[in-house]
Design a protein around this nucleic acid. Structure first.
Lengths: 349, 349
DNA sequence: ATCAATATTGGGAGCGCTCCCAGAACGCAG
DNA sequence: CTGCGTTCTGGGAGCGCTCCCAATATTGAT
């Protein structure tokens, strides 16, 4: 009776055109319009052209919710960073990871959804989000051994690839990691080759596997070179102040040290301050090599830091590749993919 | 005939329980289950308890796609960073923004979806994403005057709040910005009070409004103090090297300068290098004040930098507040909300 | 006991899309 | 001109949810 014979351009509640509108405008059925838009097989070129034109004219954009309701795909992937807030702010490596993640995911047509997890409440929220079907899969960075997240994720039927060690999980997970131990070896070998004989280290917090591996690499290489690691190692928390204090302790105990391998650029900045303050020249008196090769920090230090370089792009790329295979239904057996690191030589060693 | 009388626990294609399953399990109707889960009014406590228990037992999580198909709400908000990749990597301010955005949005029950926009292709992708109904609104950082994004966004019927100037748009947009000019004034006044009379500046790229305002603030305050700004300003690109080179030029032209206001911490790091290299003591010969008060960089420099502090958390909080009002249908007239900045005094001035 | 209000429930419709299937149109050989 | 395979099209069903509305249960007052 009412409006039955009136042309209603946009029947929808909000003003946006639907597929039905496009179809009507193009003079075809909803099905044909759908096929044209998703360039399926079996659509006449004529129909396709008409639909595409109509879509353009109407300013049509498919409703993602409706689509993913039926396809069971969201086109989104979560990037989960599980780490205390304080650490993250300081960490340019994570920034690179985000950026690379965005790029790589966009490349394969997925949207990145970033999740920060710091503390129990966040964990609950993140789990709910991941379980809620918002994303097709997740790339997860959870470097801390005590982190409950990796274990919790295993209960979800969601494809997950870890960047670096997955908490304390040793197997059954897809991992793309760097050769931390090899990086430490590279650094120490460089120092040994330069004739240094009392090579100290400032290790990272040993609740992180990466830090443990770097320390192990230092120790093994020092021993391998016939040198003595005794009294030459201190642990710090990856911060500037931590690095400075650790260097203080090291210097107090072994004022004769002639080189130090520091497990992160940030700690190296602190160590540099202690060394300079103590009147040591770098690299003259003490050679310094750090880890991360932070694009901003390492070259900005005085002197610029020789540092072990890890390529976040490569890591993320491999993670995305693995995740996409998983999403495509490939039956890859979970394994740890180890990426090589290199050394960027600057003035500090 | 087949399976008609068989109890099918999970009719769904994939294994996840639906609301219908929960309802059946709890012995109530789909409607009641929905009400219980969304704690609507008019549900008996008994029913509610049963439903909640059933949901828990079954491990039920609502399907977001289905929900937002009908509610027309996604529970997600985009955080858009429109800037060349290179800049972003270096910029810890952006990291803080992301983090604060995540926090603030989580607080109001929204999920943050991060979008990086660098170049035309990204812009297209971003627009499609934003138009596609993936998010309820957007928080946008587009500091470059020539950025086409802000203008493009106006065509969308999507609530948007900008952080800092919205490209070259002057009105009709919601903006939350910092008092860049006031910050510059703070810095210069501090230098003047310390008796400096030849106060130079290293300005940021003048295609960004913030950089323009900082330069303007410097000039106005220098003039206001009865000093002469001639020959004392150089422009750089916010990078370390840019800062170093600009300082070189400045020193070549006016070797008598006794203070410099640098528009970013990163450039200040470069300037410091030049100054130290030229044998100037800081702050003895030349006092340095920068902008950003980058949590990592400013205190890590030698000497630690006196810097103008802006609080990303406050900015983002205000942006989220405004966006939420917009989403709630409030008819706020677009305006620019200017936040104050403070000065963190360290050794460099 | 009786009635009107109020509290609670269940079913139907529909959000916008994709997929399936039956049928129409078209081609070309018999 | 018929038959059969191929290409193309349209309608129906349904994804899982929320909202509306009518139906029923409960309560308190008369």
């Amino acid at each position: 009776m009412k409006g039955d014979d009136v042309v209603i351009v946009r029947p929808g509640g909000d003003g946006r055109p639907t597929l039905e509108d496009v179809a009507a405008f193009a003079g075809v059925s909803r099905s044909t319009a759908s096929r044209a838009l998703n360039d399926d097989a079996y659509v006449s070129t004529r129909a396709k052209e008409k639909v595409l034109a109509a879509a353009k004219d109407l300013g049509y954009f498919p409703n993602q919710a409706a689509r993913s309701l039926v396809t069971r795909r969201t086109g989104a992937v979560a990037l989960v960073l599980s780490e205390p807030e304080a650490r993250l702010l300081d960490d340019p490596y994570r920034t690179s990871v985000m950026r690379a993640g965005y790029r790589e995911l966009a490349e394969v047509g997925s949207q990145m959804v970033l999740l920060f997890v710091d503390g129990h409440e966040d964990l609950t929220r993140a789990m709910r989000f991941l379980e809620g079907g918002h994303v097709d899969g997740a790339l997860v960075f959870a470097p801390h051994r005590a982190d409950p997240l990796p274990k919790a994720l295993r209960l979800l039927r969601l494809p997950v690839v870890f960047g670096g060690q997955a908490g304390n999980l040793r197997r059954g997970v897809h991992v793309v990691d760097f050769d931390n131990e090899g990086g430490a070896r590279l650094a120490v070998e460089h120092l040994v080759a330069a004739g240094r004989t009392r090579i100290a280290t400032i290790a990272g917090p040993q609740d992180q596997t990466a830090a443990v591996q770097r320390l192990a690499g230092w120790r093994a290489t020092v021993l391998g070179a016939g040198l003595d690691p005794a009294d030459l190692s201190e642990e710090a928390d990856f911060t500037l102040d931590g690095g400075r204090d650790a260097m203080d302790r090291l210097l107090a105990r072994r004022s004769d040290l002639d080189a130090v391998f520091v497990a992160s650029d940030m700690m190296a900045a602190g160590a540099l301050r202690t060394l300079t303050g103590a009147g040591r020249s770098i690299p003259g008196d003490v050679a310094v090599i750090s880890f991360d090769d932070h694009a901003t920090l390492a070259p900005a230090m005085n002197p610029p830091l020789t540092s072990i370089h890890q390529e976040p792009g490569a890591q993320v790329r491999q993670m995305v590749t693995t995740l996409m295979s998983l999403l495509a239904g490939a039956d890859i057996k979970p394994r740890s993919h180890v990426l090589p690191v290199t050394m960027t030589v600057r003035e500090s060693a």
